[in-house]
């Protein structure tokens, strides 16, 4: 009896795993089939208005890129403060917890917040509003990884630095952060991968545009928002373009993720 039950359980568990993987495989499969069939050079050389995706891809990368550029120093500094200066005080713990909660806050709520403080006063959607929304989503992730990575730095290294008369600033920047560099880089790449695929916070902060634009003070082209718009169009060609965009977006996110993993692993081993 026990053995039969055991057998049933093992079969069920394996079956569950197969079902779950089946769905995920199905998604990837349709994505590749639909996405690759629409892939051509035009996609990269023409703007959305002419049936390509050039402007929205560049727009998405630009917004995520700028958000990352601002997010990196803020996130890393906050992580450094929590680990190196904050000690174990109540405030530090509190900020740590808040940051954790923020990490999983619904991204659409961040969008509404940015809408209220940027879009309402300026009166129209702007690339900067999109950047701000992505920045808010990104900082907690960087804070968390920096915090975790710095925790792994042996205390002896810090003591050795202090002992030869280096200031805390020097110890932190030249010893501790350098030691944890690979891990922090992984965190940044993962955070970037996360925000590059965000749609909800961009819909009404950056909006999306069909034209080429590098001006962040205006409505800005976004790949994800465009996919959302294209997919609900009645025109089959536009839906096809949406699939191509979805494929490229997924490929981008997965590649960045793999890069992050690779860079993290290489250093650690």
């Amino acid at each position: 009896m026990r053995l039969i039950l055991n057998r049933i359980f093992l079969i069920f568990s394996t079956f569950a795993a197969l079902v779950g993987l089946f769905f995920l495989g199905w998604i990837l499969f349709t994505l590749c089939v639909k996405g690759l069939s629409g892939l051509s050079l035009d996609v990269f050389t023409k703007d959305l208005i002419n049936g390509g995706l050039r402007n929205v891809i560049v727009g998405q990368m630009m917004m995520s890129g700028v958000a990352t550029m601002i997010g990196i120093p803020v996130g890393i500094l906050a992580g450094i403060y929590l680990q190196e200066y904050g000690g174990n005080s109540k405030t530090t713990e509190f900020i740590r917890d808040l940051s954790d909660v923020m990490m999983s806050a619904p991204s659409i709520v961040v969008g509404t917040f940015v809408y209220a403080i940027v879009v309402v006063p300026t009166g129209h959607t702007t690339g900067w509003a999109g950047v701000l929304a992505l920045f808010i989503l990104m900082v907690p992730i960087i804070v968390r990884t920096t915090d975790d990575m710095l925790k792994l730095v042996p205390i002896e290294l810090r003591e050795a630095g202090i002992a030869i008369g280096a200031s805390k600033y020097h110890v932190t920047m030249n010893i501790v952060v350098r030691y944890a560099k690979a891990g922090i880089l992984t965190g940044i790449l993962l955070a970037f991968a996360r925000v590059v695929g965000e749609t909800a916070p961009l819909i009404y902060t950056s909006g999306s545009s069909e034209f080429w634009s590098t001006d962040l003070t205006d409505t800005f082209p976004s790949l994800t928002v465009s996919i959302y718009n294209l997919a609900t169009m009645p025109d089959d060609n536009l839906v096809q373009l949406g699939w191509t965009g979805a494929f490229l977006l997924t490929a981008m996110v997965l590649i960045i993720n793999l890069l992050g993993r690779y860079s993290g692993k290489k250093k650690r081993s």
Binding site: L24, I27, L28, L31, L190, A193, R194, G197, E198, T199, T224, I227, Y228, A246, L249, T250, V253, L254, N257
Partner: peptide, 8 residues
């Protein structure tokens, strides 16, 4: 797979 954007 956990990192695939939800729009997909």
């Amino acid at each position: 797979l956990a990192s695939i954007p939800s729009i997909i």
